[in-house]
């Protein structure tokens, strides 16, 4: 199970899709006008991501390489349609506020990115956990942005009034420009924390995996085109995972 927890940690922290990989920016910027929208969008994407990762990992030996993209899209689109109908049926208010962005999960680059770079090369169980990790990372990212934007732009969090009545909301934060401000500040903050952790000698920033070449790689923005040999990657990955687990334990003990 070590590999599975490593995948979750990887998705939540090391390769957080929102703050590190900067993937799926369209829903990130568009739907995070409130915390509840952020969490709804994040969880819908997580559901689709887990299912599609699972199915694609199952089918990875059957899908011919030359038509893998259309095949992935069909798989993702089917799950998105299911989620779309479920949301419409059971949470109509959330469905109304997310609107067009639910069907657009089909073209969310996190989902295709994970299918291409992870699920199509790995067994089913790790792929599921990769989906959970990435999806939760996305959810955490969206919810953070949503909370900040809702707090400043409307004075409430999850619909509950937090600020006193005399507070005058900065309306710009629930409009489009506010999304950019908040995302930029959170990314900067996260980079700052990352760097201070690195100074203390902790391995956090190194993205572990390079598949085949940088063109298809989801994390090429992070590593700056530095190609790691595929053989080494698996070793590096497990080592890094163990290191990370050790560090985590140490941290827990310390605290």
């Amino acid at each position: 199970m070590n590999k599975c927890t490593e995948r979750i940690f990887n998705g939540l922290v090391k390769e957080n899709p929102t703050f590190v990989l900067m993937l799926g920016m369209c829903p990130t910027l568009a739907v995070t006008t409130s915390a509840i929208n952020g969490i709804g969008m994040g969880l819908s994407t997580t559901a689709v991501l887990v299912m599609s990762n699972m199915l694609i990992a199952m089918l990875r030996k059957i899908i011919p390489d030359s038509v893998r993209m259309p095949a992935f899209i069909v798989v993702v689109a089917s799950f998105v349609t299911i989620v779309d109908f479920l949301l419409e049926g059971f949470v109509p208010s959330l469905y109304a506020s997310l609107g067009l962005y639910i069907p657009l999960i089909v073209v969310n680059c996190i989902i295709l990115g994970r299918a291409e770079s992870y699920a199509s090369k790995n067994p089913v169980l790790p792929s599921i956990f990769d989906g959970i990790g990435m999806g939760l990372g996305f959810t955490v990212g969206l919810t953070c942005i949503g909370i900040v934007r809702e707090l400043i732009g409307a004075g409430s969090v999850f619909g509950h009034q937090i600020m006193p009545d005399s507070y005058e909301p900065f309306t710009i934060f629930i409009l489009a420009p506010g999304a950019f401000f908040v995302l930029a500040c959170l990314v900067a903050l996260q980079g700052k924390i990352r760097r201070s952790l690195e100074k203390k000698g902790k391995k956090v920033a190194k993205p572990a995996g390079c598949g085949e070449g940088c063109a298809a790689c989801a994390s090429r923005g992070v590593c700056g085109g530095h190609l790691i040999e595929p053989d080494k990657v698996s070793v590096d990955k497990t080592e890094a995972a163990e290191d990370q687990a050790d560090k985590n334990n140490q941290e827990k003990e310390e605290s």
């Binding site: 005058e168 900065f170 309306t171 710009i172 934060f173 409009l175 420009p177």
Partner: peptide
């Protein structure tokens, strides 16, 4: 412009 969008009424 920031203030105009933030506090349109004021």
């Amino acid at each position: 412009c920031f203030l105009l969008i933030c506090f349109t009424g004021r």
